[in-house]
Design a protein around this nucleic acid. Sequence first.
DNA 1: CAGGATCCGTAACGATACTG
DNA 2: CAGTATCGTTACGGATCCTG
Lengths: 135, 135
Amino acid sequence: MNVSSVRVPGVNQPMCPSRLVLEHVTSRWGVLVLAALLERSYRFSELRRTVGGVSEKMLAQTLQTLERDGFVHRDAKPVIPPRVDYSLTPLGAEAAEQVWGLARWAERRLEAVESARETYDGARSQAAPGPVGQA
Amino acid sequence: MNVSSVRVPGVNQPMCPSRLVLEHVTSRWGVLVLAALLERSYRFSELRRTVGGVSEKMLAQTLQTLERDGFVHRDAKPVIPPRVDYSLTPLGAEAAEQVWGLARWAERRLEAVESARETYDGARSQAAPGPVGQA
DNA sequence: CAGGATCCGTAACGATACTG
DNA sequence: CAGTATCGTTACGGATCCTG
């Protein structure tokens, strides 16, 4: 795969298919769901509480996407009240470890990034004096 | 960092800051820009052509975000017509290799994912008979 | 040529209500 | 409990115009 292999004339056209997989696992809730399931399996609303801040709709949608891609296994027990357990497949565990690795890298370099941001923002406020203006 | 460290009551609240870094580097154009710059430095519209399908606005925005995070170096030469070269900082090279690694993983597992999707889609069409209905 | 400002359509997202 | 359906909002992304 090389960078030029994209194909996006108008809007969200296909582009390279692996890009889609990447977007699924790095999606806002995808990362958190994978990370949570890396530890153990969860039920739906249990997962919802654990992740925190995710709507039912988005959680369901995220789980379906991840299930369709073969990353999570959905175990729906035919009981009343319903009980559904979600867990990682081997492929999903791989995915989870990948994104978790990336997340840990981001965390390790967070200080460097924040430092860079301060430098950047500082340099910009020189050009456009703010409350500290030395006019 | 653990999954519960998120904080998103209403909308796009802060959550864990490393999540932001992750979103920047895995963003739609962020990945492609980093990947492109991994090979060599580029000028603005050169990069625009290389990535393909990115609008001026989004490319500028992506580059600014990446520059602010300390991932890309912006070298604006004071000439007419303007010439601006973009390249990776050491930190940016690290980021690029990380996401590139993830992208390559996605590519390696693409077949497994697509196979999983077929299984998933196939199973669903059993429940809701389509054009192949065996009624 | 590099990019800022503006306008606008789309689609992602969140909240709520409802169903099995 | 585990979702689906609907609706309103928002912000993301693209096209265009314009300036240094």
